[in-house]
Design a protein around this nucleic acid. Structure first.
Length: 1027
RNA sequence: GGGCGAUUAGCUCAGUUGGUUAGAGCGUUUGGUUUACACCCAAAAGGUCGGCGGUUCGAACCCGUCAUCGCCCACCA
């Protein structure tokens, strides 16, 4: 079975391995899971990526971390299920498809209608779901692909309907008005995330509202200031603070306090603010407000200019005496705060806007004008009537729609809400009592704070793509008629909406026909549910809830949810509350919040910036394993991941730096060879024809190199196994670790056990970077640089060969298993080659040590009995000595092939320890030991290196350079003097009295050593002078 | 305005409960075709741990403060 050595390439080829092993895993169904009473379950649900587009590096990170945990759990013997899936992402996906429709066909959604648009979005979804799943597969994610879910598929629809019905049944769903961000161009509501604020130069108009029949001592006008005069057409009151004086004093006091504590730099600004406010008191403005407050109390009425409406002057805390004129116009239909005031004060709500952004009939003669036109007209009319006092220039932050780049209008709409009170409290308790643990813990605060606001959840969206709200409206029917229509149905509920005189009919299972209530036509609610409504159910809906499926009973609650911090509240908090509400159980035990991927400028990656990177382009260049390792290596607790990536010209290899300018371009012309190559943004056919330029990144190179290092270590082991077998069968028996005599064997096994233990602990507490560092350092510095190097001399010696091979392959086998969760492909490739190498029994291993696939191999458990920290520190002495000799060789330019000798003055135990290591000094640094112990012969022409507890004399004979040697020793003495001095003063201080005895003792010992080293150096120097 | 985080070598980052001389990778310099690996090996240089103050025998680490940067939430008549 074994391959000839020339068939093991010197470089690991990721592409071939990825293809081969992905297919192999798939064929063997390793990732498929079903309830198994003999095993403990472990389940992870993927944070479903949006079907808006392809995955970027943020997803790559998220899924890498999940796969690491999932693969480890699977190896630990859990019945492990990772459920993949995608999210319909209502707003975002509909927006993408609508934008395309407009760009490519110049059509809006109203042109093609609801059904046709939905069909187009389904087509889009199919395309991107396929793309996303294939990206996940390319990354090596070990999901159970048979269980792939979509938030709009039948299973999820059922769960959503059931959840809604339950909420409705418990009267937790209600209808109310809510202001939405209205995009008048696209004629849709957009979410807060899709709004950006832009500072524009605007105006601040001061307008007089005449008071009706003012008493002699009362002002004739109420003056309000506004940046949006046209909204006055929707005013239903003007407000003034009920007690402006105390409110103002309160503000003044707070401000004074702030000035006291404020940094010097901010004080002048604050002082100015304070002066302005205090000025209000003296300038009579306050007196005016006090009068107005009294008038408001007495039911004062004012005339709304430009209309024939009479509106009240009201007293409300919302009016801030320190701002504007102290009086504020109240427009409940077009301002969230005013809406609250309106509700509180029972004011009428007058909507003056059409959905297309023009004014409606409520605006009287301004009806039909656009907002911009109406504003000009209103200002002109006010001026004409002498009601405009003044205009100020003012910088204002204006909300714009991300999608249409037009200003957002706050627009009042009927909305469905969920009452959050108890639901939120349950979710708070679940985290507060650590039933659900959040890692890192600092994110707990954000979660609790957000939920503590207990703001009711608006669940309706004015969209077509999503779960349509399962409510039907029936006007005019009597309760008897409704009852008759749905008699005996426990899947239908109805409720009377007295405000709108309509029946709400909620159906759990089916869509109701128009004629469901005989004699009436019922109409379904047009809106769809917020995307998070279905996402909130993800951990249990994907397992079959509301059915009590075997999967739900077995896998739920799931193990850990791994996600990014942006959606801790929107998604994680909602999952906890929905999980608790629906199943009575938490959805997961742990939540791990991972870092954010930033670009080289420290900016987050996003579609609009165009700085997102397709993980596939990294895989193409460096391999999936390198991608995964690099990301995991950077997943530390409180640092975001900064990725610097540059383009590589595919023709001449020139590195083209990625800039803010070129990162969104579909093609780039190489500055050196002048040929164009395409980027991930290539869209047109001609651009796609070009060769793609790879993405280069230092972190990925490091990770790729690591994979290759591992590959070559394995190559070395495989080659050594292929050497002709000797006949000494009796020496080829399996060895018990405790029988192992060689220091390096015991050392590497001790280190391996320590690493196994620490890696397991790190991964189980989501400290991915720690685990990666441990593995990287162990594999490279300890296993490759020391153990493999040392074993070389033993492999050449028949009498010492077998045990070396046994340990070598044992360590490699364990290391592969520890690394498999993070670099699955290269470890499988090596595993299979070892498994099939055919010589395992010869070195004391059996096929049981190499399972059919590393995917199903057992996770290593540390044999702590072989951990020997004393011996590990002894080994450090060997390493130190080796380094000292190498340093002498390097700094004296001793030719590599020239053998030199050295002797070491040290105590007897050290000598006993080091003497058996002689062959390694020869093989690893071509140096032969001539003596060990208290009294050794010191070569005349030697380089002396004083180390802690020993002196090394490297015989240089004719290679010696006295001047250089002297300089080196002098430098060493100066350095030692510094250390000694600081130690001495430390030991002469209070330190000896106050510090723990062990620490003091350690310091004393260290001082002695330093003094000895210094003495040795002086002696060596003296001797040099005699030469 | 509220909250969170960061500031350590030229660059990107580690640094466990405060305890010898603060670490790694990349880059730089020097030397290498050593029977796995040049995606490599050996070695070296390189740091007042953002500033100031405090607690302590002892501070990169704890406390206060200032500075700079980033993120989240809220608000802006």
């Amino acid at each position: 079975m074994s391959e000839p050595s020339n068939e093991i390439p010197k470089q690991y080829n990721p592409t071939a391995a990825q293809e081969k092993w992905a297919a192999f895993w798939d064929k063997n169904n390793f990732f498929h899971s079903q309830p198994n009473p003999n095993k403990k379950p472990f389940c992870v649900v993927i944070p479903p990526p949006n079907v808006t587009g392809a995955l970027h590096m943020g997803h790559a990170l998220n899924n890498t971390l999940q796969d690491i945990t999932v693969r480890m759990k699977r190896m630990q013997g859990f019945e492990t299920l990772w459920i993949p899936g995608v999210d319909h992402a209502g707003i975002a996906t509909q927006a993408v498809v609508e934008r395309r429709l407009l760009e490519e066909e110049k059509l809006t959604r109203h042109d093609i209608g609801r059904d046709a648009l939905i069909q187009r979005i389904w087509n889009w979804k199919e395309k991107y779901q396929t793309r996303i799943i294939s990206q996940l597969k390319e990354m090596g994610c070990s999901c159970d692909w048979n269980r792939t879910r979509f938030t709009l598929d039948e299973m999820c629809v059922k769960a959503v309907r059931h959840f809604f019905f339950k909420l409705f049944e418990q009267k937790l769903i209600y209808r109310s008005k809510r202001l939405v961000n209205w995009d008048t161009f696209l004629q849709t509501a957009v979410s807060d995330d899709e709004v950006f604020h832009e500072t524009i130069e605007g105006h601040f108009w001061y307008v007089k509202y005449p008071v009706i029949q003012p008493k002699p001592d009362e002002p004739e006008f109420v003056i309000v200031a506004t940046t949006r005069p046209e909204t006055m057409l929707g005013d239903t009151a003007v407000a003034v603070h009920p007690d402006p004086e105390s409110a103002l004093n309160k503000v003044i006091n707070n401000l004074k306090k702030r000035i006291e504590n404020a940094p010097e730099k901010e004080k002048p600004d604050l002082q100015k603010e304070l002066d302005d406010i205090e000025n209000r008191k003296s300038s009579g403005k306050l007196d005016n407000l006090k009068k107005l407050a009294l008038m408001a109390k007495n039911g004062c009425r004012i005339k709304l200019p430009l209309t024939d409406r009479i509106i009240p002057l009201i007293a409300d805390n919302w009016a801030k005496p320190e701002k504007g004129t102290g009086c504020v116009k109240i427009t409940p239909a077009h301002d969230p705060n005013d809406y609250e005031v309106g509700k509180r004060q029972e004011l009428p709500i007058i909507n003056i806007l059409n959905k297309n952004g023009t004014l409606n009939e409520n605006a009287g003669k301004y009806a039909g004008l656009t907002i911009k036109k109406s504003r000009e007209q209103v200002v002109a009319d006010l001026e004409e009537r002498g009601l405009l006092i003044s205009v100020e220039e003012r910088i204002i932050e204006l909300a714009h729609s991300d999608r249409s780049k037009t200003p957002i209008e706050p627009f009042l709409n009927d909305q469905w809400f969920i009452k959050m009170d108890t639901l939120a409290q349950n979710a708070i308790d679940t985290v507060n009592n650590s039933e659900v643990r959040i890692f890192p813990e600092r994110y707990k605060k954000g979660y609790i704070d957000w939920l503590s606001e207990k703001r009711d959840w608006p669940i309706g969206r004015q969209l077509w793509w999503g779960h349509r709200i399962p409510i039907w409206y029936c006007y005019g029917a009597t309760e008897k008629e409704i009852e008759k229509a749905f008699a005996g149905r426990n899947d239908i509920l109805w409720q009377w909406d007295s405000e709108n005189n309509v029946w709400w009919i909620c159906s759990q299972t089916e869509d109701l026909p128009e004629d469901a209530v005989s004699g009436y036509t019922i109409v379904q609610e047009e809106d769809v549910l917020d995307t998070w409504f279905s996402s909130a159910l993800w951990p249990h809906s994907t397992l079959g809830w509301p059915e009590q499926t075997p999967e739900l009973n077995y896998y739920y609650p799931t193990g850990v949810l791994i996600t990014n911090r942006d959606i801790l509240t929107l998604w994680v908090a909602r999952m906890v509350l929905a999980g608790k509400f629906n199943t009575g159980k938490k959805p997961f035990h742990d939540v791990f919040i991972h870092p954010k991927i930033l670009d080289k400028y420290g900016e987050g990656m996003s579609k609009s910036k165009g700085n997102g990177i397709d993980p596939i382009s990294v895989i193409a260049k460096f391999g999936a394993d390198a991608l995964r390792f690099a990301l995991a290596y950077m997943t530390t607790e409180n640092q975001d991941i900064r990725l610097t990536l540059d383009f590589e010209c595919p023709y001449c290899g020139t590195i083209v730096e990625q800039t803010k300018k070129n990162r969104t371009q579909p093609k780039i012309i190489c500055p050196k060879c002048g040929v164009a190559f395409r980027t991930q943004w290539a869209e047109t056919e001609s651009d796609k024809m070009l060769t793609e330029g790879a993405m280069l990144g230092e972190r990925f190179e490091v990770a790729r190199n690591f994979c290759n290092k591992l590959w070559n270590a394995a190559r070395f082991v495989l080659l050594s196994l292929q050497e002709p077998q000797t006949q000494h069968n009796e020496t080829r028996q399996p060895q018990n670790h405790t029988d192992i005599h060689f220091l390096e064997d015991r050392w590497i096994l001790s280190r391996l056990a320590t690493v196994t233990k620490n890696v397991t602990e790190s991964l189980e507490t989501y400290r991915y970077a720690d685990a990666m560092r441990l593995l990287y350092d162990f594999a490279w510095d300890e296993f490759c640089s020391f153990y493999v190097e040392m074993v070389k001399s033993r492999l050449a010696d028949e009498t010492r060969k077998t045990q070396a091979q046994t340990v070598l392959i044992y360590v490699l086998n364990t290391l592969l298993r520890l690394l498999h969760p993070v670099i699955p492909f290269v470890t499988e490739e090596i595993w299979q080659r070892l498994r099939l190498s055919g010589n395992l029994t010869g070195v004391g291993l059996t096929d049981n040590d190499f399972t059919e696939s590393i995917v199903i191999a057992l996770w290593p458990v540390a044999d702590e009995s072989v951990i020997n920290t004393e011996m590990e520190s002894q080994f450090k002495i060997f390493q130190e000595l080796l380094r000292a000799i190498r340093d002498v060789r390097a700094s004296r330019n001793v030719p590599p092939k020239t053998e030199i000798t050295f002797s070491v003055r040290c105590d007897t135990p050290t000598a006993t320890l080091l003497k058996p290591m002689e062959p390694y000094f020869l093989s690893m640094t071509k140096s032969r030991a001539t003596g060990w112990g208290e009294s050794v012969t010191v070569p005349v022409l030697s380089s002396t290196v004083p180390l802690a507890g020993m002196d090394v004399y490297v015989d240089l004979s004719d290679l010696i350079d006295v001047a250089a040697e002297t300089a080196k020793l002098e430098k060493e003495i100066t350095k030692l003097d510094g250390f000694i001095k600081s130690k001495e003063s430390k030991l002469n201080s209070d330190f000896v009295n106050k510090a723990p005895a062990t620490v003091v003792e350690k310091e004393r010992q260290s001082l002695t050593e330093l003094q000895e080293q210094r003495q040795s150096a002086i002696e060596a120097l003296t001797k040099l002078k005699t030469v």
